[in-house]
């Protein structure tokens, strides 16, 4: 257990409302039978004294793509970084409320942060390969998680690179430095690195923010393939992208969840006036 791993972060003081199985909020008819992968109940998140997220309830469904949209600074990145406890790295932050992964509270005192991070992978805004070779980048996650068998390791590196649709382009130079790849390739490498440790959920934090349109399209295609096997959460400020790739969309504004529902419905008949204004470009 890596209990004392991040001493800066104050733990949630009380085991706020362990009411699972909790009532799903805003549940629409077509989601009733869906398996919930991540359950978020009544959370508030603070940086120091300022509240970044306020009273959010939400479900992330298994094998679906959930998009978070909203103007910049609305808290969408902060929100998904809670799912793999990445915010623990930031000093003076506090979380109230409950977040469950497969019905288990990931912020409970017995939770193994390191294992949670393996199960909930993350792809960052800016491609962040290590200054190592392509192979080493992908193998890194396997090694730190205790896989030493060389054959198994190689097989899974190749497999992951194939899954990330990168293998064909780089198969002759997997021992070259990852920093020599193009931005789009680097981002797919980061996806491969994430896939290698076999996560259940993958968080994408604006994965295309620094990419050109062609690379962006490749990543979007990849997302659609990946949802067959993974639960995907993607933060994007690009509404078209959300519409293209996601099954569910959440609209956040000023740290609040304004609307959450099936993408098609949310984009065509938003229930909330603010959502409508945002979608039609009236603000943001």
């Amino acid at each position: 257990m890596d209990k004392q791993a991040f001493p800066h972060t104050a733990r949630r003081p009380q085991s706020a409302g362990r009411q699972s199985p909790a009532q799903s909020p805003q549940k629409t008819d077509d989601t009733r039978d869906m398996a919930v992968r991540i359950r978020v109940r009544n959370i508030d998140f603070y940086y120091g004294n300022s509240r970044a997220l306020e009273k959010i309830d939400m479900d992330i469904y298994k094998n679906r793509v959930t998009a978070m949209i909203g103007p910049s600074g609305c808290g969408k990145s902060t929100f998904i970084r809670l799912f793999n406890r990445m915010n623990d790295l930031i000093p003076h932050t506090r979380l109230d409320g409950l977040i469950e992964l497969d019905n288990r509270d990931i912020y409970s005192s017995g939770a193994d942060v390191v294992d949670i991070r393996r199960r909930v992978g993350m792809v960052f805004q800016k491609p962040n390969p290590f200054p190592k070779s392509i192979f080493e980048n992908v193998a890194y996650g396997l090694e730190v998680n205790g896989i030493r068998n060389k054959k198994l390791k190689e097989a899974r590196v190749v497999d992951s690179l194939k899954k990330a649709a990168l293998w064909e382009e780089i198969k002759d130079r997997i021992h070259e430095s990852a920093l020599r790849l193009s931005g789009g390739q680097q981002q797919r490498l980061c996806i491969a690195r994430c896939l290698a440790v076999d996560p259940e959920v993958i968080l994408f934090d604006e994965p295309c923010a620094s990419l050109d349109p062609i690379s962006t399209r490749k990543i979007e295609e990849l997302l659609l393939e990946l949802k067959e096997s993974y639960t995907i959460v993607i933060v994007t400020h690009n509404m078209q992208q959300a519409a293209r790739v996601s099954d569910y969309t959440a609209f956040l504004y000023m740290g609040k969840l304004i609307e959450f529902g099936e993408t098609q419905k949310l984009f065509t008949v938003p229930r909330n006036k603010m959502t409508e204004e945002y979608l039609t470009g009236k603000f943001g």
């Binding site: 998680n145 205790g146 896989i147 899974r156 899954k163 076999d198 295609e221 659609l224 393939e225 993974y230």
Partner: peptide, 21 residues
């Protein structure tokens, strides 16, 4: 986007439970 659906990635798992780390 169409027709390129691959077989779902096999759940590989197989990470040692107890870590010396």
């Amino acid at each position: 986007m169409n027709g390129t659906k691959t077989v779902p990635f096999p759940r590989a798992g197989g990470f040692p439970k107890f870590h010396l780390r």
